[in-house]
Structure formats: structure tokens, C-alpha cells
Design a protein around this nucleic acid. Sequence first.
DNA 1: AATTTTATTGCAACTTAGTTGCATTGTGTT
DNA 2: AACACAATGCAACTAAGTTGCAATAAAATT
Lengths: 153, 153
Amino acid sequence: MRKRCNVVELLARGQVASTVHRVGVLKVISRSPKAIAPRSLLQEIRKTTPIDKVTLYRILDLFVAKKILRRMTGQKGTMCYEVMCEKHNPQHPHFVCRTCGDMECLEGIDISDVKQRLRHTRYIEEEAIDLKLEGVCGKCRTKKSFKKKGNPV
Amino acid sequence: MRKRCNVVELLARGQVASTVHRVGVLKVISRSPKAIAPRSLLQEIRKTTPIDKVTLYRILDLFVAKKILRRMTGQKGTMCYEVMCEKHNPQHPHFVCRTCGDMECLEGIDISDVKQRLRHTRYIEEEAIDLKLEGVCGKCRTKKSFKKKGNPV
DNA sequence: AATTTTATTGCAACTTAGTTGCATTGTGTT
DNA sequence: AACACAATGCAACTAAGTTGCAATAAAATT
């Protein structure tokens, strides 16, 4: 489980003015154990504050530009977001469930050698490296609908 | 540049009946040096034969299910496709240009050690491993609009 | 403090990728 | 030919994300 980053510090680091919505968005993301998609993000935030989807998308774009968040492509082309903080949440590969679309973080797997091999071949920013694996998550594997199809357990 | 796979063999291997559209789709994909998105695919195919987008999407789904094609997530959530053939087109990482969305194949980079490390942690199918890097491709880097912004060359 | 300026948010309408249901056409079998 | 079934096309739809613009909130200027 990820240690939490300080929301105010993150905003300051990105030189982004603090607003209710920005803090709210960042709080939800930093508390999520998995990378999170705009859809779930909206749902979570709206439990406490009403927010328009356009506002959310704009905040997410801003945070990615200011390197406060990492953006990864998830299932079916929806994006997923996580806090970009080398200290509390260093870069790691992700596991995407092809059934439910959940994006788990695969911590403790070192990919520095892969990065090393690739760094000089293109103009690739360090944080742009996105190692992704697809499969079926534990939750989905135990569902009857999945087992019924004769899939391996 | 990739060696071409035999379209008829690929269909036979997947136990998929041969039709004009299926052969057409597979021909365009197998001739493309890069992984290709449905949008460009439609454009290419329509140069010779009229085809509905629904037909294309259904053929692509079928080919992915029958392991004739690999599907990867590209820019902004559009999917990209390439021929799945260990002999002529072994699995490899991809480089996605964040400006134009092109997906280049990074051949000659071995990631078997990464796979090895990950194989037993989850139920992950061999071919589901998707190593993706993001950056700016050579073509986009030389464009005035990109240089103007003071980006590194 | 009142006013001007600038940044942030919300609303409506739009774009694009991809999907679904159903009718139509094509293909193979007897 | 008649039948069954697979493949295709069409129209309408969903869902993610975007754009333009007006409304509001915050910050700066007088």
C-alpha cells in the first residue's frame, strides 16, 4: 500500500494554485491504492462536492502537465491517473484486468534495466515509460461467469 | 522492417474462414511497418474496397480472439493492431509519439527478463505483456511548431 | 473598498471511438 | 433450388473526452 503524499506540497511543487476542486481531486487520487479513471474519480469526488466533468478533465490535464500526476492508458482506452512522486510512489509497472478494467500497481518490480536500454534510442522522457501487463485479476477469476468458460484458475 | 507473414496461413492458423474483407484487413496490417489504428486502416482498405466501420471492428475483434493480431492501446485510447506471429514479428515494445500518435515498433529489444519476473505474480498471458514508451517521434521533433516551444532537440 | 483584471468553473453542444440490434446479403450443404 | 448459417451493412446508440462561451471566484490595481 502506498504512503500518502502531502496534497499541498504536491500543488506547491507544481506551482499550481490551490482550489477546492484541485485539492479534492488530488486527495481522492492519493488515497486510492490503484491508479484511478475519471469515471470513478467523479463518483468519489461527488460524494462530498459537486463537480462538473469538464472541470475534472481540465484539472487532470493541468496536473499531468505540471508533473503532479502520471497518466497511463487503461482498458478500452480510458486513462488512469496516479500521484507522481518518486519518494512515496516511485514509477512501477501496472497490471490491467481485461475483465473489469481495474489497474493495479505492481510495486517492487525493478525496470531500471529496461529503461536503461531504451533511454538513448529515442527522445523518451524518464516518466513516459509505461510498462503494462494485461490479464485477469483475482476478483474476476473467482467469479462464476469466468470459471464457467473453462478458463485456467 | 518486418518480414511479411502469409495472410492465408494466418487465417488457417486461427481457423478463420477467408473472406474478401478479412484478407483485405490482414493484408494492410501485415504490410504496415508500424502498428496501425482502425482509422488509418479504414482509409487504406477503402482505397481498394468499400467497407463499413462495423465490419472492420468485428474483424479486428475476431482476429484478436483468434490470436491472429495483437492489440495495444495507443494515444488517447485508440487501439493499434499488428500481426501476431512469433516467427516474422516477435513480441516487442512500442514507442508512441505523443504528438502525432504514431506507434513505432522497437525491435531488437529483449524484455524476456521482465516477462520472467512477472509471469508468476498474476495470471498473465504471455502475449498480453505490453511494454510501451511515450515520447516525440523524429518527424514531429523537426517540425517548427515543436521547436518553437523551446523543446530539447 | 470599489474596480479592473485574470483565473477557474459550469453548461451545452460537439467530436470521435467503438458497440448493438436488426435487416440484408453471401456462402456452403444437402 | 431450398435451407441453414455466417458475414456484412445500416442506423442508432454509448461513453470518453473536448471546445466555446458565459458566469463566477480570486487576485491585483487604483
